[in-house]
Design a protein around this nucleic acid. Structure first.
Lengths: 141, 141
DNA sequence: TTAAAAAAAGATATAAAAGTCTTTTTATCT
DNA sequence: AGATAAAAAGACTTTTATATCTTTTTTTAA
């Protein structure tokens, strides 16, 4: 479903959501060590998210990455689409160029129903909301 | 969700389900031309399926690939798992090494529901049943 | 019994994804 | 101002997935 890049990005953003604030930044190394993810690779992803205003950063000593209030209130879907592109939720599960309700592939209906469920979740819930659930319920990131 | 290989394999098997029988074989070229898929690559996939008794083949002139009665009555799931491995339906959507109902990742519940529905479908319906639907409803492969 | 047709097998090539390294820029603190 | 810490940017490498090519084996039919 998601590329490795996207998985790393989602996890990093959720981690940042409960670890950072505009005056509480965190470096790539801390994130990559905690999530057990390749550091320089994660850096690229965070930079891409930063360019797209889904993550914030400050350079220099005491700088680092963090989520602004605005960043927290974005639906998680934006993070996914920033890394994997908008097609993740709409592309045909069998890779057919045209596959829709009018012209469905054999697995279309099932794939649609269930992908729609995921989409509803990451599309409606914000980063902050999902992160809140993570800390309340002690989920792993 | 599925690799390209797996998508090609599913489509090829469903195509064969309504095009072939033990005495009505079809060559790789016809399949790859019809599905618009790279021929030699598809050949490898079909050979892998053949080794795992999910597709049948006969060499020589008038030979080719086909589905035996047994092949048709396998759940489509077997084809998927033969190509992408059994993890496709169970691996964590965020790639966490351990993710279960007891120790879920933030997207676990939604992802589980999503995948379970698909799994039910390809796990319960046989190749023949899905193929029947394809020809009855005129779906695209 | 030889030629041809088809799959099987194996080697090789290409492309895409994942990961690393180096240099540059920006900010902070002494 | 100078040293340092961090992200930003870009080049590069490695790995994995996808795709192709070549040779071998099997079968059929003339």
């Amino acid at each position: 479903m998601f590329s490795k890049s996207c998985k790393y990005a989602i996890r990093a953003v959720l981690y940042m959501a409960y670890k950072t604030s505009p005056d509480q930044r965190v470096g790539v190394k801390e994130i990559s060590d905690t999530l057990d993810v390749p550091g320089p690779f994660l850096a690229k992803l965070l930079q891409q998210l930063t360019r797209n205003n889904l993550v914030s950063s400050i350079k220099g000593p005491n700088g680092g990455f963090f989520l602004s209030e605005k960043n927290r209130n974005e639906p998680l879907r934006k993070v996914v689409e920033c890394i994997d592109g908008p097609e993740v939720f709409s592309a045909c599960i069998l890779g057919l160029p045209v596959c829709s309700s009018e012209n469905p592939c054999p697995l279309h209906t099932q794939a649609f129903i269930y992908r729609e469920g995921l989409l509803q979740m990451v599309g409606k819930k914000t980063v902050a909301e999902i992160a809140a659930q993570v800390s309340q319920e002690g989920l792993s990131v």
